[in-house]
Write a protein that binds this DNA or RNA. Structure first.
Lengths: 171, 171
DNA sequence: TGGATTACGAAAACTGTTTTCATTTTCGGC
DNA sequence: GCCGAAAATGAAAACAGTTTTCGTAATCCA
């Protein structure tokens, strides 16, 4: 079985888990379940990578064209509040949203050639940050590390570009 | 001689250097020298820390109240283009500008209590990032690391807050 | 000093996001 | 199953930060 296939299967379970967790959150907050919200969250959780509001809205509109920006924004805020989704800003002026992926916390490498965003995690890096903070009498709540540059494997980079999925998550 | 004093003196030389460098840049680009631009850049270079457009405009207006947002924005773009200034975004939605300080490259710790922004640099951290990029066949052009958290020395933190210079640069 | 070129400032435009408001939907209690 | 309070929706307006436009003014080289 190809790893990709396996990943997809796992993902589907994860998606259901998240939908359930969100339903829980909504109920605990005394909010209501609506068709639009369900459409938006299930669309979102099935998308991979770092999704902009516009990307999400486009997908959502394919299911229900009457859904507008306002509802998507509002739902994304709820998702963030629920802790199921994180908001990121990579400096191109628009917010991107990321359902927690396989790795709980991670940092990013952003290829400026093809727009691909890779995730990585390194414990030594985390530890080093902690010790630096310690030295400066600082307590870290969260951090953000982004490496901007280029895939060295230009072929792959260019291929990705050609496939037109710039800014999509690593797959 | 107090370190602060010394720093201030050094700074004044640096400011002159930068004004000259900018004048150079302007000339090489075939642009014109204007009173407004001079006011803006010399005000900017004399401010410390991570300056927002509004903060800069307020200062500038004390010298020449007729200068407006447009000119400040335009001049800041030129400063960035000249390489003398870097634009930063810390996620509060507004751009901040930073004249290169003593340390050429550095990262940031941002106190969420008092808004203070500390700069730091650590060669091991840089090296570690390089080796991680290498492992992933990635070439880093630039990076950004921000630690969000709190000064552990709450007293100092609260004092700074009381002094009302939240979000000001380390001094 | 003239005149082409660039810069200025005020206001309008623009972008991404949030809010408003009138209407519709949800859902616990009957 | 229906009522009604509470919440959600969608279209449009509002908003904040930034950029552009446009008519006027300043710069600076020949």
């Amino acid at each position: 079985m190809a790893p990709v296939k396996k990943f997809r299967e796992l993902d589907e379970n994860l998606v259901r888990q998240k939908e359930a967790a969100f339903a829980d959150f909504i109920q605990k907050k005394g909010l209501k379940t609506t068709r639009q919200r369900n459409t938006i969250i299930s669309t979102f959780f099935r998308l991979r990578g770092h999704i902009s509001v516009e990307e999400l809205l486009n997908q959502v509109k394919q299911v229900n064209p009457r859904i507008g920006y306002a509802t998507v924004y509002r739902t994304l805020h709820l998702l963030v509040e629920s802790g199921l989704v994180e908001e990121r800003r990579f400096g191109d002026g628009l917010a991107r949203y990321e359902g927690h992926s396989d790795v709980e916390h991670h940092d990013h490498m952003i290829c400026l050639e093809c727009g691909e965003i890779f995730e990585f995690f390194n414990p030594r890096l985390e530890a080093l940050q902690e010790s630096l903070a310690e030295e400066n009498n600082f307590q870290i709540f969260r951090h953000r590390l982004e490496l901007y540059g280029a895939c060295k494997d230009k072929d792959a980079c260019q291929k990705r570009k050609a496939r037109g999925n710039a800014a999509a998550g690593a797959e």
